[in-house]
Simulated assay, not measured.
Amino acid sequence: MSDPDNRCRLVLILPPNDDLEQQAKQLEEALSAGDVATVILPQYVRNDQQFQSVAERLVPITQAYGAAALVAGDSRVAGRAKADGLHFEGSNEELHDALAKYTPKMIVGAGGASERHRALEIGEAQPDYIFFGKLDGDIKSEPHPKNLGLGEWWASMVEIPCIVMGGNDVSSVVAVSETGAEFVALRTAVFDHSEGPAAAVAMANALLDEKAPRFEA
Rank of each mutant, 00 (worst) to 15 (best):
Q63W: 02
N17H: 14
K25A: 15
A212F: 05
Q43N: 06
G167T: 10
N205V: 04
E93H: 07
P15I: 09
A37F: 10
G90S: 06
Q43D: 04
G123E: 12
Q26C: 09
N17T: 05
S75L: 06
S114I: 15
V174D: 08
G123K: 08
G112Y: 09
E89W: 04
G90Q: 08
E195Q: 12
M165H: 05
A185S: 11
I160A: 03
A81L: 09
R116D: 04
G109Q: 13
H193F: 04
T38L: 09
T188V: 05
F191C: 10
A212H: 01
G123M: 06
H96G: 07
A33K: 01
V158S: 03
A64P: 02
A199Y: 12
I139K: 13
Q52S: 15
A78P: 00
C8Q: 08
G167V: 11
R80W: 08
A30S: 05
R76C: 11
K140H: 15
P42N: 06
L135S: 08
S171Y: 07
D19T: 01
T188Q: 14
A185P: 00
D128R: 03
Q50Y: 01
E29S: 14
A68F: 12
G167D: 10
F132W: 03
A67E: 09
G180Y: 03
P213N: 00
F215K: 10
L120W: 09
P42E: 12
C162K: 01
D74M: 01
I40R: 00
P197R: 00
R116S: 14
S32T: 07
I139F: 14
D35M: 03
A175D: 11
V77N: 00
M157F: 08
A72K: 03
N92Y: 15
P145V: 11
P213Y: 09
A100V: 13
E195F: 13
V184P: 01
A125P: 02
A72D: 13
Y44M: 05
N92L: 15
L207R: 08
D35K: 07
D35N: 15
S32M: 01
Y44N: 04
A204T: 00
E28C: 09
M1E: 15
I139D: 13
G133T: 08
A69C: 07
S75C: 10
I40D: 00
G123R: 00
A98K: 08
I107D: 00
I122V: 13
A199V: 10
H117A: 14
V54C: 14
P161S: 09
L135M: 10
N168L: 01
Q22H: 13
E115D: 12
P213H: 03
N147H: 15
F131C: 07
V45Q: 14
